[in-house]
Amino acid sequence: MDLRGLFKRPANELEKGGRTPAEATAADTFEVKRECPDCGRKIAEIDLPEMYYVCTCGHHFRMNARQRIDHICDEGSFTEMFSELETKDIINFPGYEKKLREARLSSGEEEAVICGTATVLGHKCAMFVMESLFMMGSMGTVVGERVTRLFEYATENGLPVVGFTVSGGARMQEGILSLMQMAKTSGAVKLHSDAGNFYLTVLTDPTTGGVTASFAMLGDVIMAEPGATVGFAGARVIEQTIRKKLPQGFQTAEFLLEHGFIDLITPRSEQKRVISTLLSMHEKKNGGDKA
């Protein structure tokens, strides 16, 4: 039995303003409140899961991958796949082993993406959900391999893929092999697409760099969460390059919608319904392509 996801995960230290672990234990009591960066309202931490981590003003807090799976998938329908793939320090990058240990501790996961199959209001799909608490969802060889295997599995079984992205980009610590994952995953998405299968991406905060420039932007339908940062280059790098301040709202989901690069912005409360409707509309007759 896979026990992962059954236990309470350590809270995201960053979102709480970088508390020490000792204080974080206290953060699990009902007294701890999180301040909304948009409206300033203080929300009890304990109430957030029920609110899908969305403030009453509409601000979407980050959500971890297991919470997202619980929120989107029908209860008990998610079956994890490819979790056996182990991350190795292939090019002997200084400090990588330590970073990995820290990432495993803070996220409770083995890597920055979780893959599997699930149903959403009864509609079956293959699903990947990236985890920001694991090295900011960066893509190394294992993330690339899991996503690729998921697409290959979905192609073989004529299944649609629903993918939630959150990523800082390709993972520096695996050097050029991280970059190769962009090509590998894009190839797998293309073969899945060429076989007539449906792919829906949900871009969540933040989706940037090598993930934006590969499987995140290759969906048949691209959905984003309100206010999510989505872009290729980091805003700071752009400011340094062009020596200008960037306009308000640059690289947000709303900015991408305005410029024609995403299909729709869907608040968390609506996602399950919209995703299941889209899956239903793209359902294959006769159970898929399998001859």
Partner: peptide
């Protein structure tokens, strides 16, 4: 590297690269 500019982002730098990767493979 691909240009890091305001216009490049507005015109979909990430998407342009992603498209090339997927299309070149096949």
């Amino acid at each position: 590297g691909a240009f890091c500019g305001l216009g490049a982002e507005e015109r979909g730098q990430g998407r342009a690269i992603a498209q090339n990767l997927a299309e070149m493979i096949t």
